[in-house]
Write a protein that binds this DNA or RNA. Sequence first.
DNA 1: GGGGCAAATCGGCTTACATCA
DNA 2: GGTGATGTAAGCCGATTTGCC
Length: 288
Amino acid sequence: MGFDHEASTSGLHLVLGLSLTATTTPSTKPHQDHHHHHFCVVKPSPTKPNSPNGPSLTLGLSGDTCHLAKQVPNNSKVYCEDPLDMSRQTSPHSVVSSFSTGRVVKRERDLSFEEVEAEAEAEADERVSSRVSDEEEDGTNARKKLRLTKEQSALLEESFKQHSTLNPKQKQALARQLNLRPRQVEVWFQNRRARTKLKQTEVDCEFLKKCCETLTDENRRLKKELQELKALKLAQPLYMPMPAATLTMCPSCERLGGVSDNASNKSPFSMAPKTHFYNPFANPSAAC
DNA sequence: GGGGCAAATCGGCTTACATCA
DNA sequence: GGTGATGTAAGCCGATTTGCC
């Protein structure tokens, strides 16, 4: 785990990144998790909960961070995990489409072919407005909650480990294998994904809390260091105190030395663990 | 009776595909 | 034939309801 701080000297943007190595590997079914996140968090794929790479998180304070978009192999669409962006992508057509496809269609899709047929017959016999009222009246077809057996659960779990989403063929096969309706298998996978995501969110939350604590400590330390620097400056007005890690000035020739290319490329935040001050008498410059 | 878990439902969104002007 | 607009179907999601332990 590491922290990457990046601050623009121009003050145009500020990005705070918390990363645990790359875990942005797209899941087997890519367009999961493209929904609403109020900050850009790249999470480990739910399909690979035991990924050796661990989670990767990025907090973005600049607009750039929400370019953490995902490539979606199926359709090559790019999603940004931002509710506003998502709403912008929503075409008026899709809204119309949603309204145009009514609950009847949805219900048909939710049921197996036989059930749809049976229900159509029932509806032809007596015009009932809803299934609920139907069940309430006769009580024979009351909604019974399925309890999966251990074997069924185990098989579903095993299948979920392999792929967190099912294509229609897999769904059918699994349903046949479990003696369930495809819809039940589908619902189980949906709920299972939801639980996985919830769990992952909790883990992310804990991780962010720890990050916050660490950054608070770091902030406190830096403030303290700044105070020390100010105090030293007041005490020794003839010499400009410099962190030895960044600048080394020869007191005799006043040339700068000891600033390597690597050091110049470092982030302003990547400082030595413990700052120490230049002692002109103890450290004569090698450049002289 | 109340809480937790999980199955099921609902409404919304996105995408692919078909049709038509 | 190519293109854009529109409708439909399907799949997934988050939120919620509901039944069971």
